[in-house]
């Protein structure tokens, strides 16, 4: 098992160098999106409207954080079940997404799509929010605050441990 430090955004060569089960300490800017945010992103794409961030240069983290206590950078941060986002993944890949972070398996069909698009899916560990929260440098609500935990948050990660699941 290799341990690799990587910064977002990735080059194609960096993605190609990854192998399943590699441990990656991930740094850089990511945006969270769960079920409801995916619905809204797809709605924007369907209507040909621009997204407020460049999917090619970031990662989507399937995550709905808990609120931060006063004076803290963030609350509890961790991955939600990625398979729920499978129905949206093809459109996201078409729109340029190449890096996803979540929890658990993807469908066979989604795994094939991820490979065909030269993308990577990282599995983060579920239920270790206190560990992962120590890897968050900044966290702010970015879009659709009305969705609460399901809003899009912009987070900067520093050496967050994830494992290559599909590449």
């Amino acid at each position: 098992m290799k341990e690799i430090k990587l910064n977002l955004p990735f080059t194609d060569a960096e993605i190609n160098s990854l192998r399943a089960n590699d441990k990656v300490l991930l740094s850089g800017i990511v945006y969270t999106a769960r079920d409801q945010a995916h619905k809204r992103i797809l709605n924007l794409l369907e209507h040909g409207k621009p997204l407020p961030f460049d999917l090619r240069k970031t990662a989507i983290f399937y995550c709905g954080p808990s609120p931060a206590r006063e004076g803290r950078i963030c609350g509890a941060v961790g991955p939600t079940t990625s398979a729920r986002m499978d129905p949206y993944t093809e459109e996201m890949l078409k729109a340029g997404l190449r890096v996803m972070i979540g929890k658990g398996d993807r469908s066979e069909q989604t795994a094939t799509l991820i490979r065909n698009y030269g993308a990577v899916y990282f599995a983060a560990i579920g239920g270790i929010s206190a560990v992962l929260s120590r890897c968050i440098v900044s966290c702010e609500t970015f879009l659709w605050e009305d969705l609460g935990a399901e809003a899009i948050y912009r987070m900067e990660l520093l050496n967050m441990p994830v494992f290559v699941s599909i590449v």
């Binding site: 995550c63 709905g64 954080p65 808990s66 206590r69 803290r72 609350g75 509890a76 941060v77 961790g78 939600t80 579920g126 239920g127 270790i128 929010s129 206190a130 929260s133 120590r134």
Partner: peptide
């Protein structure tokens, strides 16, 4: 130590 929830899904 950090008084942070064990999991973000509380």
């Amino acid at each position: 130590e950090d008084i942070i929830p064990l999991c973000q899904d509380t």
